[in-house]
């Protein structure tokens, strides 16, 4: 039996953390969660997931900085990252995508859209 893909959700807003975790579980994934960026980076290093859903405005370091650290660690360098955030300024979106993100999703999001993106990212399509 093939194992379920693992998704790490990092968000300091409990509502979005819960919603995104529920959607990822609904997409057939095992879910880990973190409420802060550094906690997410540590969790990813300890147990590399197949996908990271990463908020941008986090309380300790930004999601972009967290993504850079995740990319620098060999064990997580290739893990796809989808940013999901309220930050819709063009410079922020450009910066996020330039970091090699697999996706950039604006909050509030369409659950079907997020499900599609999670499935595509964990299947490598």
């Amino acid at each position: 039996m093939s194992r379920r893909p693992k998704v790490l959700v990092v968000d300091d807003e409990p509502d979005y953390l819960r919603i995104a975790a529920r959607i990822a579980a609904g997409a057939g994934c095992a879910v880990m969660t973190a409420k802060a960026a550094l906690e997410g980076v540590a969790l990813a290093a300890a147990e590399p997931p197949d996908l990271i859903l990463l908020d941008v405005g986090l309380p300790d370091i930004s999601g972009f900085e967290a993504a850079r650290r995740i990319r620098r660690a060999p064990a997580t360098a290739a893990v796809p990252i989808i940013f999901f955030t309220v930050r819709s300024e063009v410079d922020m979106v450009s910066e996020g995508l330039a970091l090699g993100a697999a996706g950039y999703v604006l909050k509030p999001f369409d659950p079907d859209e997020l499900t599609r993106r999670i499935r595509a990212a964990v299947s490598g399509k």
Binding site: S88, E89, V90, V93, L97, G103, Y104, V105, L106
Partner: peptide, 19 residues
């Protein structure tokens, strides 16, 4: 699009002074 929904991208471009 592979990295963003078109609808989100429209909102981003419409909100950017240059576009």
């Amino acid at each position: 699009l592979p990295d963003m929904s078109g609808r989100d991208l429209v909102a981003v471009l419409r909100g950017a002074p240059r576009t």
